[in-house]
Design a protein around this nucleic acid. Structure first.
Lengths: 157, 157
DNA sequence: ACAATATAGTTGACGGCACAACTTTTTACT
DNA sequence: AGTAAAAAGTTGTGCCGTCAACTATATTGT
């Protein structure tokens, strides 16, 4: 195939390739891979499990619906991940005294260990990512993401 | 459950919640939903199919591996989506004269129509997203994303 | 007090996507 | 020329994530 002229990209296409959304998507994907690797290598949990552990570890006692609200994860996804975290012994579940629908979730000692082990690694990673950016850049990025998030919710075609 | 004090977030947690990666993830997700809706409502294709159509439409004739390289989609994903686009009559496939492994892909008239219909809508959306940002913001964002993308590839724990 | 509604959580079904094994064909090496 | 290595695609497998249906319990309104 080497005697073929490579496909040339017309300007229109070049512009498409720079769509912000596309860039964000790529960055997102790579960040996910990176985080997943750290978590898997160090404590053997998935990114979603980590989010939940971090939330529980930061708040002592938590309900599944709080996890849903906070992490914006799907109900069902949270339910299944809670189950797997209980099975792997990282999370414990207790009945709520007054509302029998609710389960109160907390970290087991093993869960605490995962939390304490992974947290500094994740912080270090975050710091490293930000090291390449100025303080001002980080602030700008936060502001822009906020703006984009709102604009992305505009649902009219 | 209303007589319970709401779970209070400690500062540690608040910091976690602001991790850039988390914010990027949320924005990414919402942008995806928005784009998917536009594409589904107007021309009935998925986001990945659209990416492929856009690339083919912008380059006349394309191979699957070029799609892989350009979109950074998975090989298998491209293969299956090419198949579905051919089945739905939006893409046509021809044999490469000199390399029988290769299929040359191009848009059918129906595919062209999808391309011409969706492109302005997607452009308009992009423009709208950027309307909320200054020219400088957009430039900064591009630069930051570039930096983050590189930093995200650092694979050492 | 009771019917209607809302909320907590579970489960099933389905598609999206990543990873890896595999086939076929082409290129590179000596 | 002949073998090894690479490249193009396809396909299988399994996880992740979304949507919707469902059960059980709690709350609200009259």
């Amino acid at each position: 195939m080497n005697d073929e002229t490579p496909t040339t990209l017309n300007p229109q296409l070049a512009q498409l390739s720079n769509f912000l959304t596309y860039r964000i998507s790529r960055v997102h994907q790579k960040l996910n891979v990176q985080a997943s690797k750290i978590l898997n290598d160090s404590v053997g949990v998935t990114l979603n499990q980590w989010r939940m552990i971090a939330f529980i570890g930061g708040a002592e006692t938590v309900t599944a619906s709080e996890l849903v609200r906070y992490t914006t994860m799907d109900k069902g996804l949270v339910s299944r991940n809670v189950k797997s975290l209980i099975e792997s012994g990282l999370v414990a579940s207790f009945n709520h005294e007054k509302d029998s629908r609710v389960h109160l979730l907390s970290l087991t000692p093993a869960g605490e260990l995962v939390f304490e082990t992974a947290l500094p690694k994740m912080r270090r990673r975050q710091a490293k990512l930000q090291d390449n950016l100025s303080r001002e850049d980080v602030a700008t990025l936060r502001r822009i993401l906020e703006t984009l998030e709102i604009a992305a919710e505009d649902t009219e075609t």
